[in-house]
Design a protein around this nucleic acid. Structure first.
Lengths: 234, 234
DNA sequence: CTCGCCTAAATCGTACACGAAATTCACGGA
DNA sequence: TCCGTGAATTTCGTGTACGATTTAGGCGAG
């Protein structure tokens, strides 16, 4: 059931096609393989990905447009740091945007729409975090199914871009047991609010949900930073 | 006084430097010189701006990252239409973001900060729309002075990008007398709320202000479209 | 009328040349 | 001997030209 949705998702990495230089560099930045504030030399990246300099240059320009790279004239490009401040900034915006998108869904959702969302939720429950990557996909689809047909394409695009970043960061950090329970609980509550056509409760729930996710990721990022300073015993 | 601020504004067109191909194409898109959904052929643009194809390609990639052009592989680039729907989408997001930024300003503003904003307001009042371009600049600075030092750089960047687009569109459309009065009245009310440290009133006022501006621009865009269908008499 | 080839055009990748900036190294003074 | 300064060298960013690849459109045969 949920696979039907996958095709509609604006795929970052379309299947069965060599990932472009743009996608590779972007992934390297988000995942942290390219260090924060690190220099991005075109020749180096070109050699690394086995292409010429021109595709690299265009990829960097696109990334600059998206805000992942900062460039100064005649001094090249640097990686914009994806630190906890950046994540906090994004979540603060999402706390504002997602409730509005959710409100709209509550108003226009058909029973089929709700059934689709619920089936995604059921799958997440039965999966119970056994496969974290799969869980992340389902979580994204769970929300995307609600925002999919919103008339404000610009807001949905913004949400999607933010989601990609946050998803990539989440993959690097564990999810606490507390948070796992909270996510499923809040999803459940959101579904209940939607089914009873309670806009206000749905909006409030999703606001709480987003804020909790943000807080959790930032805490995990702080913990990871602390780990780097504590030498392992063993 | 207000000139001090100008230097801090992330200038789109730094003075005394030849505008880059990127800036020229971007301006052509926003201002409507390049028609909506029109094809963007690199050779054509290169000839138009007297450069080679490579700078054009990189400019298009950056614009794609910012969402102004859409590109499909091996089929080139097209102009994303800046229509009233797009403007509505932007304003709907600004209605959410700007009140939050304003709230923060109310909490942390010093008397000097408020004095600066007020001086900008006074200048706008005394100017009274005699110079529309100057008014636009002052209006932007009026709000930017409040958001300038907000900790959420991502939100401020988002606001700034939106502001650039809306400013360019505003330049193409007249401002009704009603709206002119409303703008100054709402600015005055916002200042009063700030000076009495009334977060809620300031946030509510700015929300009303943004929504009113959006509604007005969209109405003007609709009127301009209607004008195209009514042949001139004389 | 439809299908398939074929030509024209535009995009995409590669190689190269020029100019600016950063680094290195040698020289002179303390 | 050590440090600061300045010039030479090297590195890197930016612009140009060209060949390869893909797509769109027209033309003719069936």
């Amino acid at each position: 059931m949920s696979e039907l949705l996958t095709e509609d998702v604006p795929a970052t990495v379309p299947i069965d096609r060599a990932p472009s230089v743009y996608e590779l560099i972007r992934e390297d930045i988000i995942s942290g393989r390219l260090p924060a504030n690190g220099r991005l030399k075109v020749a180096e990246l070109a050699a690394r990905h086995g292409t010429s300099t021109n595709p690299v240059r265009e990829a960097l320009q696109q990334l600059r447009g998206e805000g992942f790279v900062v460039m100064t004239p005649n001094r090249g490009a640097r990686v914009r740091p994806i630190d906890s401040d950046f994540v906090r900034d994004i979540y603060e915006i999402e706390v504002l945007v997602e409730p509005v998108l959710t409100r709209w869904f509550v108003r226009v959702a058909t029973s089929e729409d709700i059934a689709l969302v619920e089936s995604l939720h059921d799958e997440m429950v039965s999966l119970n975090y056994a496969d974290p990557a799969r869980h992340g996909d389902l979580d994204t689809q769970f929300h995307y199914a609600m925002y999919l047909r919103h008339y404000n394409r610009h807001a949905v695009d913004l949400w999607w871009r933010h989601r990609e970043i946050l998803g990539a960061i989440s993959k690097r950090h564990p999810t606490s047991l507390n948070r796992r329970a909270a996510v499923l609980r809040e999803h459940r509550e959101l579904l209940d609010a939607i089914k009873s056509h309670d806009e206000d409760r749905a909006a409030a729930t999703v606001a709480r949900h987003v804020e909790g996710s943000g807080r959790h990721i930032i805490e995990q990022m702080g913990a990871a930073r602390a780990d780097l300073r504590i030498p392992r015993t063993g």
